[in-house]
């Protein structure tokens, strides 16, 4: 017979573990989607409210490739990332680049326009109902670790997120391309004058950011359901990750996304009557305390 306090302790512990686990999985999805936004906003100083469109496009592409074209999970995932990255590159070359030197308002209006068009297009093509998450059979079950069961897919999400974080961190810290990005975030004119092709850099990082968003959108379809209003509905959370994490950094958004994911998960478990109220209040407080975000470098971004 176990004493009552022990059962209570155990229940609290497993609740805490469950909150943390779901929160981290949620945070990883937010991170995958938002990290590209952080880098491109930091690089170009562009207020991009349409980033969610690329995540949504990734989700739709993966669902369609699996359901209609019958592709297996991983090839579908890879192909949708490539498609969306190419799409992002195209839009950056034709539209975004003309507004780099425009005012904030023009950038806001243009990207809101893009969101509206994407919402309408998605509704027209796929209909208003949410799409079933493209989760393969072998990732559906439970994973038992240390006497506790974890949903396999969420574990896979966390693992994928960790791989991407490691890749980005190494890529930004150790490669020539990464060094060029860091230099351009710090001082665009100086970077240009020492011969960095910033125009090409913008295009590449925009494509990379859109591709990562697509990956996040497709992988996270289980948590953030793919429906036409996706880009608009989750915009605030993507922006919170970027603004709280700080522009032009890799680790800042990770911390912000995990914090946001765990807080959201805890709020919906412990205090559902308040909804997302505390998240907004905390964002307000953090941005007041540090307007450039928790890890932002002064001078980066708009």
């Amino acid at each position: 017979m176990v004493p009552a306090t022990d059962t209570a302790m155990d229940a609290a512990l497993s609740a805490a573990i469950s909150i943390a686990f779901h929160g981290v999985a949620y945070g990883m999805v937010l991170y995958l989607i938002s990290v590209g936004l952080s880098v491109t906003m930091g690089l170009m100083g562009f207020v991009n409210l349409a980033h969610g469109v690329f995540a949504m496009a990734g989700g739709y592409a993966a669902v369609t490739l699996m359901a209609r074209a019958g592709l297996p999970f991983f090839p579908a995932l890879a192909l949708s990332v490539v498609i969306v990255a190419a799409l992002g590159m195209m839009i950056e070359r034709t539209l975004y680049r003309r507004l780099y030197d425009a005012g904030e308002l023009d950038q806001v209006l243009f990207t809101i326009g893009l969101v509206f068009m994407a919402v309408a297009a998605a509704k027209f093509i796929w209909g208003p109902q949410p799409q079933p998450a493209p989760v393969p059979e072998y990732l559906r079950g439970q994973l038992v670790m240390g006497g506790r069961a974890f949903p396999a897919y969420r574990s896979f999400l966390i693992l994928s997120g960790a791989v991407v974080v490691a890749g980005l961190w190494l890529g930004l810290g150790r490669t020539r391309f990464g060094a060029q990005i860091r230099a351009t975030v710090d001082n665009r004119r100086m970077a240009q004058s020492i011969g960095i092709n910033t125009s090409l850099l913008f295009t590449c990082s925009f494509a990379l950011g859109s591709g990562l968003a697509a990956l996040g959108g497709a992988l996270g379809a289980d948590i953030l359901a793919i429906d036409p209003t996706y880009a608009q509905e989750h915009l605030v959370f993507f922006l919170i990750v970027v603004a709280v994490g700080g522009l032009g950094s890799i680790i800042g958004p990770l911390a912000a996304a995990l914090l946001l994911g765990v807080t959201a998960s805890a709020c919906s478990y412990l205090a559902p009557q308040f909804g997302a109220f505390f998240i907004y209040a905390a964002t307000l407080a953090i941005l007041l305390w540090r307007p450039h975000g928790l890890f932002g470098r002064k001078g980066a971004g708009p």
Binding site: V236, L239, F274, T283, L284, L288
Partner: peptide
């Protein structure tokens, strides 16, 4: 509060204030 910020932070703060009020009205 909001007008102390500039650029993205200002934009975010105005957005967050409105979202917060809507969430409050909802709850």
């Amino acid at each position: 509060i909001v007008l102390r910020a500039r650029g993205l932070a200002l934009l975010m703060l105005t957005l967050v204030v409105a979202e917060m009020l809507q969430e409050a009205a909802n709850k």
